[in-house]
Design a binder for these strands. Sequence first.
DNA 1: CGATAAGTGGAGAGACCTATCCACTTGGCC
DNA 2: GGCCAAGTGGATAGGTCTCTCCACTTATCG
Lengths: 244, 244
Amino acid sequence: MRAKTSRMPAVPDAAVGLRADARQNRDRIVEVARELFADRGLDVPMAAIARHAQVGIATLYRRFPTKESLVTEVFADQFEACVSVLDDALADPDPWRGFCTAIEKVCTMQAVDRGFSAAFIAAFPDAVDIEQERDRAIQGFAELTRRAKETGRLRADFVPDDLALLLMANSGIIAESTEAALAASRRLVAYLLSAFRAEQAESLPSPAPLNLHDVLNSPASTPRPAPQAGTSPGDPPQSRSRNR
Amino acid sequence: MRAKTSRMPAVPDAAVGLRADARQNRDRIVEVARELFADRGLDVPMAAIARHAQVGIATLYRRFPTKESLVTEVFADQFEACVSVLDDALADPDPWRGFCTAIEKVCTMQAVDRGFSAAFIAAFPDAVDIEQERDRAIQGFAELTRRAKETGRLRADFVPDDLALLLMANSGIIAESTEAALAASRRLVAYLLSAFRAEQAESLPSPAPLNLHDVLNSPASTPRPAPQAGTSPGDPPQSRSRNR
DNA sequence: CGATAAGTGGAGAGACCTATCCACTTGGCC
DNA sequence: GGCCAAGTGGATAGGTCTCTCCACTTATCG
């Protein structure tokens, strides 16, 4: 399975029939977008991306019809990196160590890259090939969890969905500077890994509050226009005459 | 110190010289705002708040010249509730138990109220009276930490600023439904409290990554216009002639 | 009861942001 | 070289949002 080496750009699939200059532009767009997303978060305006990539907005939008599609493309390989972190973890002869380092690595990636964190937690609503990877990742982590429990180092009442908990918690750690975020994330992860160890099995409250599948998929806090409490239906004017 | 009973509206200070009807409106605005913030987050439009409170936007803005001021007002007493949670904790004869329940309570408040969570983490840039309370809270928590360590139940390398870590992490736990968020938060807190116990003192990475004082004060992820990557200075057009 | 300061609603100014349109350019094949 | 499909930039439409302005209404006090 997965014959292709799968790592690095390797022609992003959608950039095949493009004219040379067009492709160069496309590449620069993605590159610039990745950088901007990383340190300003997902809500940098499309205009800023275009400007930094030195193309017109139109060009940007022809290549990526919607902002979401750009986000998806940009983070597709970041997600793949996560998957390969998991592969490494599964390959580790010591499952507990694999478990710990996998979590540490992914959380570091999250802490270092604002946009990645947001995109990761938020939405890959379409992204077909990602969807596949995602399921593989979930299964892989379940397997890793099982093995780690088998060694007796991971507490028995840990559930794979707790990873969702951890990822969301870690995503809350967003400091002014990247360094601070990284340090904070590291300490949080250290605390949590310590809590995951089998030794102190003080009973935990509920078994599975958040679903890992959802966290890695459902649309959530993406650039989407935000909850919207305005003119939307279900917001009746409610009479209460006064004045006039 | 703090002679006044301090709990419940008790005339919010700024609503003293108001005409009867005006004051009624003001109260309704705050009440409605609290509800909306709680379940839709801080970015409900001012218009929606005005509509629900059945006043014109102008009224809303005369009472609260800026959205931030409304947010501040709304969460001032919620913050006070936190402070009193801390007082309770300090009054507990068992410091470790006080420590745990204080954290549990505050995190529950955060999980149950989207807006509170955001406002808490985010910004009280002006709010003079809050500032005072905040310092008191920080000192109080430091004292609680000290006592809890003294009992030997809290690990020695815990630092008060770790509360900032915990609060930010907990704020990352925002699910679709409030119940899910609550359950998730509870489990996260349980994990973390377990990690805070003295027994497993596996060494932690860095001592103090986030500053509690900043987390409770500095402007951050408030409704503020968002990072802004657009026309702002330091975003040069960068020549790269092509076309035209 | 009336005068008047206090209070009010809603239109709209000014910023942003995503996304579209269209007249113009240019790479690449003959 | 020249043709033309492929590619391009910038103006702008259309949507939000916060906050301002001003002509009108009403509580309150003598």
